[in-house]
Design a protein around this nucleic acid. Structure first.
Lengths: 140, 140
DNA sequence: TATAAACATGATCCATATAGTCAAGTATAG
DNA sequence: CTATACTTGACTATATGGATCATGTTTATA
């Protein structure tokens, strides 16, 4: 359902958001080591994050990435989408029986339901929850 | 998001549910022709539906399939699952950072949200909606 | 009883997307 | 000037889903 790409991307952004800003940037190596993320794969993901303008790359020794955007202004849905969440719409796009259209509406509704979950969680929520251990504090 | 398999399966069950019971069974050919469903693919799908015990096959000439279950007792989620909706769980199953577990919960919640949509629609709802043209009458 | 209509079963193929890799290059701290 | 680390672009491999084929079995009906 959720691709590894999206999973890693959110993990990475959370890592950046949890890092004291103004400090030395976070290297891919750190993220790659801390969680089991395959190194070169992270590179691909960060390319997308950088294109989106959310992170800044610092080249050279002691380089890495810094967060550019306020974590409260970025939802998980936005992150997921920028690394390729659900490019291709649902099936059946093209034919058209009454029955098929009806089903199509349902698939859309479904898709919307899951997107709403992601849309409702900001990166800042994630970071806060992370700091406070594992207590569930989204819907308070 | 929704596979063609699931789409076709729901379409097929709707077709059976819309057919006067006690009448001659519905042949795969009819379904295949009416909507653009590739013939031999339907065979695969009906194998699952039959194994689930929801349809009865009638072999020989004039054969086809009959619905065995009450449409009000079957949800779209059940149909989707029997033809292989979301066998494999979300990614990350195996590792375990605090951050990863936290994300995992979110993916699960997401998955649950979409499943709830399907779980909330019975085959009978679908059939009724189909009869009454295209008016939305799910949440009344 | 012969034949055509249909389902039954199992194997197989192909296209696409995703996960993951490689290599050559550039920038920068120390 | 060297090690570290990002940049870019191409590339491979594996799994999944979609779709097909071939062969066999059952049964209505002419």
């Amino acid at each position: 359902m959720i691709s590894a790409r999206v999973h890693y991307a959110c993990l990475a952004m959370l890592e950046l958001a949890s890092h004291p800003s103004g400090d030395t940037p976070v290297s891919l190596r750190e993220i790659s080591d801390r969680h089991g993320v395959p190194g070169p794969f992270l590179v691909q993901i960060f390319r997308s994050l950088r294109t989106a303008g959310w992170v800044q790359s610092v080249r050279g020794s002691q380089g890495g990435y810094r967060l550019l955007i306020r974590p409260s202004e970025l939802s998980l849905l936005e992150i997921a989408e920028v690394v390729g969440y659900q490019e291709s719409g649902n099936p059946g796009t093209g034919k058209s029986t009454a029955a098929e259209l009806m089903l199509q509406e349902i698939w859309d509704e479904m898709s919307q339901a899951s997107r709403n979950v992601l849309a409702g969680i900001q990166l800042s929520d994630l970071a806060q929850r992370h700091r406070n251990g594992e207590e569930s504090m989204f819907y308070i």
